[in-house]
Design a protein around this nucleic acid. Structure first.
Lengths: 372, 372
DNA sequence: CTGTTAGCGCTTTCAT
DNA sequence: ATGAAAGCGCTAACAG
C-alpha cells in the first residue's frame, strides 16, 4: 500500500533508477548488484553493505517488466474447484480466474483447471493426485473434504508449493492466502434484513438442502451463516417473537420437496419469511410462483441467474452475494505475483457482504468482470 | 473479457508466439511485422496481407512487458480533483489513484495531482489552465463547474489528450471513460431502506446543505439521489403515508443549524427518519447524540470516518457507498492502459451501490485498497 | 568473489 | 520496401 497518510505530489521528475546506476555508485558491476538484491550470495561483505546502503537510500525498486522478461521460467498453476455450470457460483469463480489468467499470461504464468464432483470425496482425492502429478508451481483450491485437503496441503507444503484457498478457509493450514466471506457475519446481516420489519409472531422457514443419506449439503459456509442468523436472534432476544421452522429438502427429490412444502404450508398459516443459507433459494421461489403465494419475504445467497431473475421480478426480496469472481481473480493473481515477483499477500482477505435488492441489482457490476 | 461461455482448459503447452515466429512464417523480418502490427505503413501490399493473415490465424498478442520495455516514452497524467482531507470522499478517490500509480509506474506512467477548492469556480479554472500548461498525455478529473469543464475538455479534445471522469459524468462530452454511481438509483434504494418498515404517518426529514447565498451544496449527484428517493415514493404511492419535510442547513453556520433543527423538532413530534443526500449525515448524528434523541432512522451517503463511527455505534442506520477508491483506481489505470497498450475502455462504468449497516460494515474492505 | 556477456520480446533507427 | 542491429532493464551462465 502507498502511504496514503501523506499524499505527496509527484513531480514528473524522478527518473527511475536502474541497477546499472546502483552499480556505478557502488563501484561494482550490475551482476554484483543483482546478487545482493536477490541474496544469491558470493558477495564480499563490504561490497554487500555498500550496495545495500545505496539500494536503501535510493529506495530502489527493480522494473518488473524487465524482470519478467529476463526470467525465462514458465510457471504452472493448477486450480482445483468443483464442477461448474454456467450461471452458478463456481462458474463465477472460474470467470474471475480466467480474467486473471489473461492478465498474468504476460508473466509466463499458465493455468490448468481441474474440476471435481463436489459431492464425491473420491473425485476430489483423484484430482488431488492428478494435481500433484502435474508438478505445479502454485495451487488455487476450494477446500472441500477436510481430510483430503489436509493430506493435499501437507504434501504441497513439503514440496514448497504455495497454495491459496477460495470460498472457505481451513484454519491451521498455512496457505499463502484465503479469499472468501465472513459467513457468520453474513448470516447476521440476513437476519437483520429478514426481521427488521417483519410483523411479530410470524413464522419463518429455515430451509436446508440435504443429500441422500441425510447429510446437509453445503460447505461449512452454510452452517456458519445459519449460526450468524441465530446469533442475531439471540442478540435481540427475538426467540419468542418469531416461530422458526426448519425444513429439510432433498437435492434430488423434486416432487417429494413439493409435497413436503405443501405440508409445511398447511401446518403453518402465518409464514412470512423463508431463508436458505445455500444458493438454491430459487427453488423456493419456483414453488411460490407456481402456487401464486405472495407476501413472503425470501432471502437467499449468491447471484445465480435464476436467483437474480426472481430478485428482479420481486419474488425474492434480497440476495446476499460474496463476489465469487473477485475471489478467483485475487486468488490467482496472488499466486502469480508471488511466483513472478516474490510479492507477499495478506493471508486472509474477506470479500464484502453485498446486499442486493431489486433496486440495486441492475447496477451491480463487478467491474471489470461483468463488462458486457 | 475472456469468452467465458466456453471455459476451455489450458494445457500448459501453448508456447507464446513471438514476432520473430511470425516473421519466419511470412518470410520477412521482425521489423516488417512490427510495421504492419502498428499500421506504420511502408509495407508492400502482398507482404502486408500475408503477415496479417498469419497474425490473425495465430491470434497473435504482443508481449506487453517487452512492449513497455522497448518504448522509451514516459507518460504524464494529470489528476484534477477537489481538495481532500483524510477520511473524506475525495481522499478515498486519491487513495485509489495512488494505488494505481504504483502499479502503472512500471509502464513509465507518472502522475501529478492538482486540487481545487470545490466551492470556487475560479480555483477550478486556474488549475485547469495549469493542467494544460503541464502538457499531460492524459487527464483524470471530477467534472465540477459545467461551463469550465466544457471549456477544458474542448481544449483536451483538440489536443487529442484522452480524459476520464470520476464521481459524476458530463453527458455529451466524449470522455475515454466515466466511473461513478447511478445516483438516481441509489436514492431509490435509500427510499426502500428508509420506508420499508417505517410506521405510517411518520415524519421524514430531507436535509440539504446550502452554501452562503442559498445555493445547494453538492454536485448534481446530490440532486439526482433525491430524485430517485422521490421516485420511489411516487412509484409506491406513499405521498400520503409519510410527511416529508425539507430542512436547509448552512455549511458554515453550526449554531444556526442547531437552532433550526431544534425548531423543526419542536414543530414535528413524529420524526422517525432523516436522510441526507450528501456525505454530511454525521452532522445530524452529532445533533441527535448531543440531545440523546433516539429511535430515528438516519440514512446517509459515503463512508467518511465520522459516518462510519456513527454507523458502528448504531446512531446511523445505513450508509450508501460508491467505492471512491475504485473510481480513482480504475480511472487512472484506464488512462495508463490506453496510453501504454492502446487498450480501449468501456465509456461508462457504474460502481455498485453498496449498502452498509452496522452489521456488515466491519467486513467492508475494498480489497486491495483497505489491506491493513 | 566479481565482471562480462548473451539474451527475454519488442521497437526504432539506419542502411540498403 | 525491408533487413540488420542496437537497446529497454534485468537475469543467469560463464569466465576469470
Amino acid at each position: 500500500m502507498p502511504d496514503t497518510n501523506e499524499i505527496k505530489k509527484t513531480t514528473f521528475s524522478d527518473d527511475k533508477v536502474r541497477i546499472k546506476d546502483i552499480a556505478v555508485l557502488a563501484n561494482v558491476s550490475a551482476g554484483t548488484v543483482d546478487r545482493v538484491i536477490h541474496n544469491r550470495g558470493g558477495v564480499a561483505p563490504d561490497s554487500k553493505k555498500r550496495i545495500e546502503d545505496i539500494l536503501q537510500e535510493l529506495n530502489f525498486k527493480p522494473n518488473r517488466m524487465a524482470r519478467v522478461l529476463a526470467i525465462k521460467k514458465d510457471y504452472k498453476l493448477v486450480v482445483l474447484l468443483p464442477e461448474a455450470a454456467q450461471g452458478d457460483y463456481w462458474w463465477d469463480i472460474i470467470k474471475g480466474i480466467k480474467r486473471a489468467e489473461e492478465e498474468v499470461s504476460d508473466y509466463r504464468v499458465k493455468t490448468e483447471v481441474l474440476q471435481f464432483n463436489q459431492y464425491s470425496m473420491e473425485s476430489f482425492a483423484t484430482l488431488a493426485q492428478r494435481l500433484l502429478d502435474l508438478t505445479p508451481d502454485g495451487v488455487l483450491m476450494a477446500p472441500f473434504f477436510r481430510r483430503e485437503v489436509l493430506k493435499l496441503t501437507k504434501e504441497l507444503e513439503e514440496r514448497n508449493i504455495p497454495f491459496v484457498f477460495v470460498d472457505s478457509n481451513v484454519e491451521s493450514v498455512n496457505c499463502l492466502a484465503y479469499y472468501g466471506q465472513q459467513s457468520h457475519q453474513s448470516g447476521y446481516v440476513a437476519a437483520k434484513i429478514m426481521l427488521g420489519n417483519l410483523e411479530k409472531s410470524s413464522t419463518i422457514l429455515l430451509v436446508h438442502m440435504m443429500r441422500e443419506g441425510g447429510e446437509a449439503i453445503g460447505s461449512n459456509q452454510t452452517a456458519k451463516r445459519e449460526e450468524g442468523f441465530l446469533a442475531y436472534i439471540e442478540k435481540y432476544s427475538l426467540e419468542l417473537s418469531y416461530q422458526l421452522v426448519r425444513v429439510n429438502l432433498h437435492a434430488e427429490d423434486e416432487s417429494g420437496n413439493e409435497a413436503h412444502l405443501e405440508e409445511i404450508f398447511r401446518q403453518h398459516q402465518n409464514i412470512r419469511g423463508i431463508i436458505m443459507f445455500n444458493s438454491r433459494i430459487y427453488r423456493i421461489a419456483d414453488f411460490l410462483e407456481k402456487r401464486k403465494i405472495k407476501n413472503i419475504r425470501l432471502i437467499g445467497y449468491d447471484l445465480l441467474e435464476r436467483n437474480v431473475q426472481y430478485l428482479k421480478s420481486g419474488v425474492i426480496e434480497c440476495l446476499i452475494a460474496q463476489r465469487p469472481q473477485l475471489q478467483g481473480y485475487y486468488g490467482l493473481t496472488a499466486l502469480a505475483r508471488r511466483l513472478a515477483f516474490h510479492q507477499p499477500s495478506k493471508p486472509v482477505c474477506y470479500m464484502p457482504i453485498d446486499i442486493l435488492f431489486k433496486e440495486n441489482i441492475n447496477d451491480y457490476k463487478v467491474y471489470p468482470f461483468d463488462v458486457d
